[in-house]
Structure formats: C-alpha cells, structure tokens
Design a protein around this nucleic acid. Structure first.
Lengths: 197, 197
DNA sequence: TGTGAAAGTTTAGTCGTTGCGCTTATTTAG
DNA sequence: CTAAATAAGCGCAACGACTAAACTTTCACA
C-alpha cells in the first residue's frame, strides 16, 4: 500500500517533483519574473513541452493542487457544530487552514515562500483565483443550509465576502485578531437577516 | 475653450479612437480571443507598435480610463449626507454609477458590450482589477471618517466587501434589489461595531 | 514476447508585448 | 521665415509563455 504504483508512475511523479523543486529554488533565488520557464526546465533536465504537460502554466509550478479544498469548505458549512453560525464556521475553517500552514513557520523556507507569493503579482493573483474558485459551491452550500433558493443574493454575498476575507487576514501579522474583526462584520450582518444560523 | 488643443493632439486622439472603435467592433463580431492585436491595428490602419503606445495592453482597448473614479469613491464616503451610514453611502454610489451606465441600456451596443465583458475571462478580470484598484484609498477614507487607525482591519474589510459587492450586483437582473441584499449584511454588521456611522 | 499506451523530445509556430532605429509631421524659438 | 526640437508613427527583430505535430523511448500487461 505504500508503493501502489509501478515504476512508470514513480518516474512521472519524480519528474513533476524535480520541476516543482527547480521552480521554487530559482524563483526564490532570482525572483519570479527573472526566471524563464526554460530555465526551470533546464534545471529539472526536461524539455519545456514536458514542463507544460505536468503544469498548466508557469504560476502553477509553485502550488500543490488541493483537490478536496472545495469539499472541505462545503463540509465546514454543512457539518458545523450545532449552535455555531455559518460565518463563525467559515472563520474557524479559514483560520484552521491557515494555522495548518503556520505549523511550518519554523521552516525558513515557508516564510520565504509566503513572501514570494505575496510580493509577486502573478502568483498572488493565481493563489487568489485558486481560492475563490469555489465561490459557487460555497454559495450553494450556504443556501442549502438555510433553506434559501440557490441564487439567493445574501448567500452569494456571504460566500464572496468570507472568501475575500482570507487575503485580508493573510497580510496581517495577527491572523486571529484580523479574522475576528473581519468576520465580526459578517456575523452581525448575517445574524440580522438569518437569525439562528 | 472648446478646441484648446493643436492639430497634433487632435490626430492623436483620433487614432486612439480609431483603435478603440476597431477593437470593440472586432471583439463583438468574432469574440475577444478570436481577434489578434494585429487585426485591430490593421482595421485602424496603424502599426501594432502604435497600438501599444496608446493602450497598455489588449484588454485596455475596450475600457475608457476613468481617472477620477477613485476621487469619486472617496468623496462618496467623505461627503455623504448626514445621518447616512458609510455602507449606505457606498451602496448608493455604486448603484448610481451603475444606473449612469444603464441610461444607455436602450442602446443595443451597451448590452452587447456588457455581455462581451462578462463572458470574456480576460476582460472580466481586467474590469474587476480596475475597480478594486482603489481599495487602499477607500480604506483610508473610511478609517478617516470614523477616526480609526489607517490600517484598521474592519475598515479594510468594509472597503474590500463593498467593492466586491459590485460584481455580485452586476450579474443580477435586479441591481437595486441585489444591492440591498448584499449591503444589508454590511450595514447591520457595520452598525454593530461602529454605531452612528 | 510483443504490443500499445504514456512520457518525453524536437521543431516549429502563434500571440502579446517591447526595444531600436528610422521617417515624417507638427510645434516652438530664434 | 526658417531651423531646431518634439512627438507620432513605422518596420523589424526579438523575447517569453504556450501549443501542435510528428517522432522516439520506455514500461505495463496480456
């Protein structure tokens, strides 16, 4: 079970890993815009076309694909502890995801990586896109949780605002406090129109 | 005063207009991605180099630059009618801007243009970027209006959420109703932490 | 063992975008 | 009125991200 794959898939995974490693290394050394996609391919010792068979674009090189991110988001709303409001559940979920990463804060590579992403427009935008990708799913989950129609505007607004709150929190030194302040707006506003959720 | 410019500036404005017209025409006919920047330049009868001297990129071809958009946003907060809350003022401002455009709703070109922008990812993203460009300025304006520190998180959150609300409103058939529902969240939440603003 | 799918390569190309050196037209100053 | 300064516009060559096509190698599996 530890090695369920054949030699072929292992080699493929290895190539992918080589590319990701090379990319991160070069981007941290020289900066994202100062590194060409060819440079990455050269260091990983593959052709440029191969690089694009593994990654959808230059920005994707530094992000591990979280496939079940959407499911976790929906579950955070659906399976929230009774008595907890939806904004509270979302705040907790986002903070949890954040502190999961922050566990590695001792690793200097982690803080460097974060700085790289936040200081590179292309990467910042890409990360934001990947995160807000699931707005529609979250909107549906919220609407279902409160028995509202699927296209209810206040549900869509809560979903959008909660997802947007993440980058507000991310750029602050005190994530917990920032989350509390940003979500206070949503909690009070939500309670006013959807009491008990 | 009606003609304060020389022949030079007039010609420049004319080529710029030719480019914008050609771009909109071609984009509407064939779709944004099916039109190359060279096609636009050819129809406008200028070189590609000249096109990029007038517009910062392909997406900018279809947007008139609103230079005082930021000032208007800040003014909407600073000069709001007494007794009106900041979220209310922002909602009105956004709705006003929207209906200013909607005046041209009789013009079939307007609805076509809107569809083009909303259905083309590159244009949708660009428009969103141009709009959210002024988040920092809006945050400062709000903070100043309530006497909070410049980097207050709840002010930043209100600014971000209010700006994000626009695209929520934009894609809905009933802008007024959508704005009311989306901003209800912000008004109640804001009132709870900043009573009287 | 051999066959076919999948990884990888090479080559050539598209498309947006920029830099360079040049011509041409307009403005400004002498 | 003329000459120098200014700016628009041009063609061309290039760069970087990305794709298509045709081909070779390698491994899994029947």
């Amino acid at each position: 079970m530890t090695e369920p794959t054949g030699r072929r898939e292992r080699k493929k995974a290895q190539t992918r890993q080589s590319l990701a490693d090379a990319a991160l290394k070069l981007f941290l050394e020289r900066g994202y815009d100062q590194v060409g996609v060819k440079d990455v391919a050269d260091v990983a010792d593959v052709s440029v076309t191969t690089l694009f068979k593994h990654f959808s674009g230059k920005e994707a090189l530094v992000f591990d694909q979280d496939d079940d991110l959407e499911a976790a988001l929906v579950a955070a709303v659906r399976d929230r502890t009774p008595g907890q409001s939806i904004p509270q559940a979302l705040r907790e979920h986002i903070l949890l995801k954040q502190t999961q990463f922050a566990v590695h804060a001792t690793d200097p590579r982690f803080t460097d990586f974060t700085r790289l992403v936040q200081e590179t427009p292309a990467l910042r935008d890409y990360a934001h896109r990947m995160w807000t990708r699931h707005e529609a799913a979250l909107t549906r989950a919220i609407a279902e949780a409160v028995g509202a129609p699927e296209d209810d505007v206040s549900c869509a607004a809560l979903a959008r605002f909660a997802l947007e709150a993440r980058s507000l929190i991310l750029r602050h030194a005190e994530p917990r406090q920032a989350a509390d302040e940003a979500f206070a707006l949503l909690e009070h506003g939500w309670a006013a129109s959807h009491p008990g959720n």
